[in-house]
């Protein structure tokens, strides 16, 4: 099977380990991965901040870049949700404004083919045990867009439970937002930080060494708070855990 990786702009520029791990993991599972280099960003920052029209060129670009792939796999719940939930809205609004069908068609073509990594593993490949090994105590934060917009449900936990030697610890108040929220983090810095502090405290209360998530934008915010506090916790993307094996273990370190 040949799929496209939509790495997302955050993973590409700032946290490439998750994208690299996604490639390694999928290749290990026999999937042929392509990375169309004309890809960039889904436009979520613009759209969610109120700049819908500035999102539109990116909608068209995404549809064009990924046109030929049956699946577009992305290690980000919120970017997948942006495409699946908001692209059709952008298309519908453009149509309502009498600006043609192009955006609506682009959205209708792309949206159903974009899948978040855990959906791809569990629903498309039909695996929960991906042969990973990760001998650490882990707690999982289900980011809001994956949890509520995509409805990822127990998929990430099922994948983590199948990881050898991984001790999974339940995160209290897991379903509560970490406070990132894109530009919310800078437009409402105090509330965002208060939410993030509570999330970090909840993660620390579990005794976990690793705070795992499936959305690096949330982890970026939480990692910034963890490091500011010098807290004994690492934020690690789920893909990195699933990519780790006994022969090629996960290692901390400078990204890529």
């Amino acid at each position: 099977m040949r799929v496209a990786l939509f790495a997302t702009c955050v993973n590409d520029a700032v946290l490439p380990r998750a994208a690299i791990a996604t490639v390694r993991l999928l290749e290990r599972l026999g999937v042929e991965v392509d990375f169309p280099e004309q890809q960039s960003c889904c436009g979520q920052p613009q759209f969610n901040t109120g700049y819908r029209l500035l999102t539109e060129p990116l909608v068209l670009r995404m549809a064009r870049v990924f046109e030929t792939y049956p699946y577009v796999v992305t290690p980000s719940g919120s970017c997948a949700a942006m495409v699946r939930d908001n692209y059709p809205r952008i298309g519908a609004k453009a149509r309502a404004e009498d600006r043609g069908e192009e955006l609506a068609e682009a959205a209708a073509s792309l949206a159903p083919r974009v899948v978040e990594l855990t959906e791809f593993l569990v629903d498309v490949l039909g695996v929960t045990d991906v042969g990973a090994h990760f001998p650490h105590r882990v707690t999982y934060h289900p980011s809001c867009h994956g949890l509520r917009v995509l409805g990822l449900g127990t998929r990430p936990l099922a994948l983590l439970r199948a990881v050898k030697d991984l001790e999974l610890l339940e995160l209290p108040g897991a379903e509560e937002c970490c406070g990132f929220g894109g530009t919310f983090a800078v437009k409402n810095p105090d509330v965002s930080a208060a939410m993030g502090a509570d999330k970090v405290a909840a993660a620390l209360s579990t005794g976990a060494q690793v705070l795992c998530g499936a959305d690096n934008s949330c982890l970026l915010h939480l990692d910034g708070m963890v490091r500011r506090r010098h807290a004994p916790l690492r934020t690690v993307h789920l893909a990195e855990i699933l990519a780790a094996t006994e022969t090629t273990p996960w290692r901390p370190g400078s990204p890529a």
Binding site: D12, A13, L15, R17, P189, G196, G224, P255
Partner: peptide
């Protein structure tokens, strides 16, 4: 500035993903 009130800025990677790719 608003970001770093409560958080460290992310450390950038040695290279972006597309270079690795």
């Amino acid at each position: 500035g608003a970001w770093t009130q409560a958080r460290d800025l992310p450390r950038l990677p040695a290279e972006p993903f597309r270079t690795w790719w």
